[in-house]
Design a protein around this nucleic acid. Structure first.
Lengths: 361, 361
DNA sequence: TTGTAGGCGTTATCAT
DNA sequence: ATGATAACGCCTACAA
């Protein structure tokens, strides 16, 4: 236990007024600041700051001394003080919206992971905000306004004007993943080639003998919905098929179950079901099977996405794979260019898809 | 467009040197600070601050005036400046670790959601850090050291001494979800009753006729592994069964596939497989089916967790459900007590499980 | 190579 | 009811 005696001034009686402050290990040690370290190492705060940020400007002996003090106090600089002073946070945020059945759609999981990996090479850290939680949005806004975010990757389903406004006001570059913005070329977007992918899937179904094909899609009017539906319609028209049937449902496994109820009523005439996404397809298959429909013997089912679970359904799901890993990487690299003011050749990047034939067709 | 003319000084020729600064709407407006608002509203910065934080201390007229200026400039206070000054962030962090096949284990998704919902009632916002990303850990540490985190919920699989140390140093209360810490009662933990759950599952298998039961578990020595395995062994021993077989594998669908390879070699003698978790069970079922084993006719499969997918496998998975929603709620409420210095009756909370019988057994 | 002064944007404290 | 001042912890700019 140390006792520090601070002699102050003589009082009127000529007696020393003494202040005693006691510091011991039992006392909860206050978090060390740069000031403490500076004092302990016998240098100025600036020198400590230099040791942290530009050690090459400081003599070796001093560096060693300061490092020792930092170690001793287990000193960690406060990031927010740096940021308040105008430094970068070296952080990229992800905006996602979790669906009911998953905290994060299994589809975007891979995309997020590959983007984070690419960003890591530039020492950029990543953070996810879930926009389905209203308060999380307020957190995102606070962070953006505070300089805690150097860049943003916005995932499909989370585009909102007020959000891009916040980003613009704060000069935070962002890219959008999952849908295309052909009309709006200021926005950099990375998306799959929905139309071509869906055409590929439909061609396969038709070429292998299916004539009466249903399309089960989500509700809404995003480009991916429009493009896949158009591909479905075009394929039918070009093949001169007569049957055509679009069913809208919630984009979830449960939504697929519900859609399947409608399909069952006309199961005799249907050969195949093309689903907007694997998650819907999984629900469709399940309910169809529950109602005694053999997949693919009686009805073939085709998905879209190739989520990790797709190969574990029974029968394993035939699907049109989005190259989520590639999309994540491209998203990260595009964002990096934006952040470092490098030119971007293309603001509207379309990634090809691949038909993966498994057992459900 | 405004033009401001600053007359400065007369030069040697007696001619006015003039500086013209142009400000227009096209110029990117600097982000407003409290100082700007104060000036615009004709009050002190403190008054603006009061309007934001304690409007009841300010006269109605002034409030109105200040609000108008804030609106006019679209002013948003910088959170980090408040925090530097010692204010709370009103944020709770989640520590998770994503598995290969899902960005977030589907099991914890529900838990996270219900915790976030409970926290919302106290205006606490939530944020997730993925510890499988090494840089995300550094971000977490920075945030913790900066006062950006008022509390933490640590999910199973992410317990690390250095992390709890960071939290302790910064006086950030935390609770742990997913594993129990019976030996260490300083740590508040919420977990399922693994032993009882596994016993329930084993009893069901045995009561319904299975004699030769395998246990497929993950690698590691966490309490849940130990408890479920012990339950398996105890059940077998108490029922005087002879067959006993524990297979360790990676805790993933792929791990389940691999384990199934070993099971196939002895498929004639096995009646049932009890899996540590649904994710493994899904892989086991898939590979067994691929090898022509009928589930549950030849081999019955029992999972643990009841993840959202469990009811969508074919056959639908019989499993021991963890009440993730309840766990999330309890975790949130326990953390709230810690944060508000309220007494906590129990530091080691065990949540009961429920056997859900579907088709795989 | 090192140190001093001042400020980032906010609020606590004290004064009016 | 409102304002002046200092401080939170760090870094930029300049000076020595």
């Amino acid at each position: 236990m140390d006792i520090t005696v601070n002699s102050t001034h003589l009082n009127s009686c000529g007696v020393n007024a003494i202040m005693i402050s006691i510091s011991s290990e039992e006392m909860p040690m206050k978090k060390p600041t740069i000031k403490i370290i500076a004092k302990d190492a016998g240098v100025s705060e600036m020198t400590v700051s230099r040791v942290i940020n530009n050690p090459e400007l400081v003599s070796e002996a001093t560096v060693k001394k300061v490092l020792k003090s930092m170690e001793k106090y287990n000193y960690k600089p406060k990031m927010i003080a740096k940021i308040l002073k105008g430094r970068k946070s070296k952080t990229v945020g992800f905006l996602i919206s979790s669906r009911q059945e998953f905290y994060i759609s299994p589809f975007y999981g891979e995309c997020i992971r590959s983007a984070a990996t690419a960003l890591k090479d530039f020492s950029l850290r990543t953070l996810s905000f879930n926009l389905l939680d209203t308060l999380s949005k307020s957190l995102f806004v606070d962070y953006a306004n505070s300089g805690l975010l150097d860049g943003m990757i916005i995932f499909e389903g989370t585009f909102q004007e007020d959000i891009t406004e916040v980003l613009r006001v704060n000069n935070i570059p962002f890219v959008y993943v999952g849908e295309t913005f052909q009309e709006n070329s200021d926005i950099v977007s990375i998306s799959s080639d929905s139309y071509e992918g869906a055409r590929k899937g439909m061609k396969y179904l038709i070429d292998t003998g299916s004539k009466n094909i249903c399309f089960v899609t989500g509700t809404g009017s995003k480009p991916s919905y429009i493009h896949r539906k158009q591909a479905y319609l075009d394929a039918i028209s070009e093949a001169n098929l007569e049957y055509q049937n679009v069913i809208e449902t919630e984009r979830s496994m449960m939504g697929g179950m519900l859609a399947a109820e409608k399909l069952i009523k006309q199961k005799e005439e249907i050969n195949a079901v093309f689903c907007f996404c694997d998650v819907i397809a999984i629900g469709v298959i399940k309910r169809l099977q529950e109602r005694g429909v053999a997949i693919p013997k009686e009805i073939r089912v085709l998905g879209f996405d190739n989520i990790p679970f797709a190969k574990y359904t029974t029968p394993a799901l035939t699907t049109i794979a989005q190259d989520t890993e590639k999309m994540g990487m491209i998203a990260a690299n595009s964002l990096l260019k934006l952040m470092f003011n490098e030119p971007l050749e293309n603001t509207n990047i379309i990634v090809p898809t691949e038909l993966i034939i498994r057992e459900s067709t």
